[in-house]
Design a protein around this nucleic acid. Structure first.
Lengths: 67, 67
DNA sequence: CAGCAAAGATAAGTAAACATTTCATATTGT
DNA sequence: ACAATATGAAATGTTTACTTATCTTTGCTG
């Protein structure tokens, strides 16, 4: 799964630590999500979409193998 | 977190087993998601939204404590 | 009423998410 | 270039998503 977290973060000029704090996870946890090391729960995805004022579908995109 | 999986399933006249097969998880796993026993991964949420031709936000709603 | 399919629930086990700590490597400002 | 800050990443440990199996309940249909 791909994501556009870094882009959305840049729009708000937030660090990983900033975003992590907003959605209630550790900085390292967010880093692992952002770099695709693990799949976030739907709660986290919804929280992220909310703070970025966008949708889960915009933030996360399934790739071929997952579709 | 609340969800409208049952409603969407009813629209398509699918059983839990049908939906589970479509998104690639066990029937019991889907049952546990549908009844709120655990939070699905974003991949599953996106797959569900896709097969129902809707969005993750429509299928899953954070409640107060999670918002 | 019998019998089957759909659904809910629970227990035990596995895999993966997420935390914490720590260290290395950019990137940026002065 | 130097220092401070931001990011990437690995090891270890805990929690939780998810599987498989089993049992019960509900509702439908012969």
């Amino acid at each position: 799964m791909k994501n556009t977290i870094k882009v959305e973060r840049a729009k708000k000029n937030w660090t990983q630590a900033d975003l992590a704090k907003h959605i209630g996870i550790s900085r390292q946890g967010l880093n692992s999500i952002e770099t695709g090391k693990f799949i976030p729960s739907t709660v986290l995805a919804l929280r992220m979409a909310k703070v970025f004022d966008t949708t889960v579908e915009v933030l996360f995109q399934l790739d071929e193998a997952e579709g």
